[in-house]
């Protein structure tokens, strides 16, 4: 049983006439961490949304743990199996951190409140903010909010985690605490697909790096190769640009 957890095959997606994804294929095996980078508007977020069926694509298909997204009869169940972390956290501002985390386990998975809270405290501990459980998200720092959002995704005990630029809305001093949690997850064997421009994180944690441009995968290579000998001209340009900025 070593089929990939996530398999994207020849996915094509258009918004009217604009091609957002063009023949994209990608596999993430169990325990792998793959980083996606690329300029703004290249389709990275759109690709992540396709993986858990939030966006309809016209061509190809995606399989999550062997289940086809296109033919999926029970999308909520499929989505539960894929945790998602967003750039702007998307915590629910009218609920406490604890309620944020227990909502889906109770309503979608049918756990009892007690079970869901035990799970929530377990993962809050894992991301290091147990003491913030009873607060509303607005009272937390950006880094704490993102860690709460990660705990929320983990509490569904997903088979894979998708991260969409999880640190790019954070102040520099808070980026490290979130990356620390993500590194810890990857080392713990979580299957991860991460959109980020944190190349330090990519070098250290990723198994493979993907570079996207204008809806296409331009480069896809093991991490060492990606940084040492990028083949595509576009990748070199992009790497120069962001590495200089850091």
């Amino acid at each position: 049983m070593n089929q990939p957890i996530i398999r994207v095959e020849n996915v094509g997606l258009r918004f009217d006439s604009f091609v957002a994804l063009d023949d994209v294929s990608l596999s993430v095996n169990a325990g792998q961490c793959i980083v996606i980078c690329g300029p703004s508007g290249s389709g990275k977020s759109t690709l992540l949304r396709c993986i858990n069926g939030l966006e309809r694509f016209q061509k190809g298909d995606v399989w999550v743990d062997g289940v086809s997204v296109r033919g999926c009869q029970d999308l909520p169940k499929l989505r539960r199996g894929v945790g998602m972390v967003f750039q702007h956290f998307e915590l629910y501002p009218h609920m406490t951190v604890l309620e944020n985390i227990t909502l889906a386990p109770i309503k979608a998975k049918g756990l009892s409140r007690k079970q869901a809270e035990d799970l929530a405290f377990h993962y809050l501990d894992r991301v290091g903010i147990v003491d913030q459980a009873q607060k509303h998200p607005g009272r937390l720092s950006g880094g704490q909010q993102q860690r709460a959002a990660i705990a929320r995704a983990l509490a569904l005990e997903p088979k894979a985690m998708l991260f969409d630029e999880p640190t790019s809305a954070l102040d520099p001093e808070m980026i490290a605490e979130v990356l620390y949690v993500m590194r810890d997850l990857a080392r713990g064997g979580m299957t991860m697909l991460v959109v980020t421009h944190e190349m330090g994180f990519a070098r250290e944690v990723a198994d493979e790096v993907v570079f996207m441009d204008r809806g296409r995968i331009v480069e896809h290579a093991p991490v060492d190769e990606f940084f040492s000998t990028p083949r595509a001209e576009r990748t070199r340009e992009f790497l120069n640009k962001i590495l200089l900025k850091l």
Partner: peptide, 16 residues
């Protein structure tokens, strides 16, 4: 729409 996507992505139905 981003809050809706957050809810849906956690496996809640549209109604939930």
């Amino acid at each position: 729409v981003r809050q809706i996507q957050a809810g849906l992505s956690s496996g809640l139905t549209y109604a939930q």
